[in-house]
Simulated scan of single mutants.
Amino acid sequence: MRSLASLFAIVLLATSVSAFVSIPLTRFQRLGAYLKGLPDADRARASFLKNRASTGATTVPATNLVYVQYTTSVGISSPPTYYNLVVDTGSSNTFCGTGITIPTGETVNVTYGLGYISGIEYLDQVTLAPNLVIINQSIGDALSYADFEGVDGIIGVGPVILTQGTLSPDTNATILTVTNNAVSQGLIYDQVLGIYFAPANNSSDTNGEITYGSIDSSLYEGELTYTPVTKTFPSAYYWGINITSATYGNKIVFLKSTAGIVDTGTTQVLLADDFFDVYRSSIPGATLDKSTGLITIPPSSIPYMQPLNFTIGDTIFSMDVAAQLIPTDQNEAWGGVAGKQYGVVANLGTLSGQGLDFIIGQKFMERYYVVFDADNNCVGFAFMNNTFSKYME
């Protein structure tokens, strides 16, 4: 965006690994309560997502943006100027303030829960890595925007159907995503995206990787468990899946298969309000803090906390105690109070049974490798070396 100065260190790491390249993802530095209001933002995004729906490979670095979301460095035009774009599987438009090459004659308007962009659609060259240069990629030039502080735009890697209705005057048109074009131009063979996130050690941590066109088996352990994209709407418009059951220790959160989405653009793990109430009430003394929107957990209850288990396919994926807690040195960033213990699991803002009953966000993906496979219409999950890691106070 023209008026948004990039606050990230530009990362241009392109590492060839066999037939693919990985690109790291980085965090950037902020002070103060910059995460305050994030739970409300996640719920607003969840509400928006629900309502909106009526050959090679290349791995690139990803940077965690102050514990909230991941960005990757993307070159626009030729020679490329590099921008830090949010990696978003919950949307499919790519936008950044460029406006330097071929206008398409269309305007573009996209709403993102709490934010929006409005501008002109252009065709330009996009460099995801030195060996992954896409020509004639449709990009939005954001002339006006809201709630995108600290980033230069978004690279949308959700299903292409999400771009329908974002252009004008051709409201029925869809916009080919970077993955679509990379395949059509022979740069990668498969419409597959591998995501590796990890818990951050500091507020600006290049600790993630995105693989375009395949998966990177060095980033996960064991076998991948694949599950088909759900047929339940509105989750079916996104990278939606069914979770067969969920438990907290021996407490049943839900037992029947229910639909939700897997979304890199959501920070927390959100559960339908009735599911969340089961979770919260199972932790003695846990309350929902109105100031932060986060669950607060008494220190005396932490030694007795249990894993939060999700059954996907035939595999149980657990968030252990460490995965459920926000390190206390992040309290200020989340708008919290020193000495309190907050958690990453939150309420969705609506009851279950509406077709989008959970969102598996970044905090889950920091524990499990995730594969988004558009060719086979499925999502895969695998354990990583940091699936079970020690909680850092």
Rank of each mutant, 00 (worst) to 15 (best):
V151P: 06
N131P: 11
L128T: 02
I188R: 10
S144Q: 12
L176A: 13
V160I: 14
V183E: 04
N136W: 07
I161H: 07
P130Y: 02
G115T: 03
N131V: 02
I135K: 11
L187N: 03
Y116D: 05
V133R: 10
V108D: 00
L114E: 09
G150K: 14
Q191K: 15
G119C: 04
G156K: 00
G150T: 05
I117F: 15
A142D: 15
G113F: 02
G150A: 08
T171Q: 09
N181L: 12
L128H: 02
D124I: 03
E121W: 01
V151A: 08
I161V: 14
Y112R: 05
P130I: 00
D190I: 14
N109S: 13
D170F: 06
I139Y: 00
A182K: 03
G156A: 02
N131K: 12
G115Y: 05
G113M: 05
D141G: 01
I175G: 01
V126Q: 04
N180V: 14
N109Y: 14
Y145V: 04
S184D: 12
Q191G: 13
T179W: 03
F197L: 15
Y189A: 13
I188F: 06
V151I: 15
T179M: 12
A182P: 07
T166W: 05
I154L: 14
L193K: 10
I188Y: 05
N181P: 11
G140V: 02
D124E: 11
P169L: 10
Y189H: 06
N131W: 04
G150Q: 09
I134P: 04
I120V: 14
V157I: 14
Y189I: 11
I161S: 15
I135P: 04
P130K: 03
T111E: 15
I154E: 12
F148Y: 11
L176C: 10
V108L: 12
S118Y: 11
A182S: 12
V108P: 00
T179V: 15
I135H: 13
L162W: 01
L167W: 02
N109P: 02
D141W: 00
V178S: 02
I135M: 10
I175P: 01
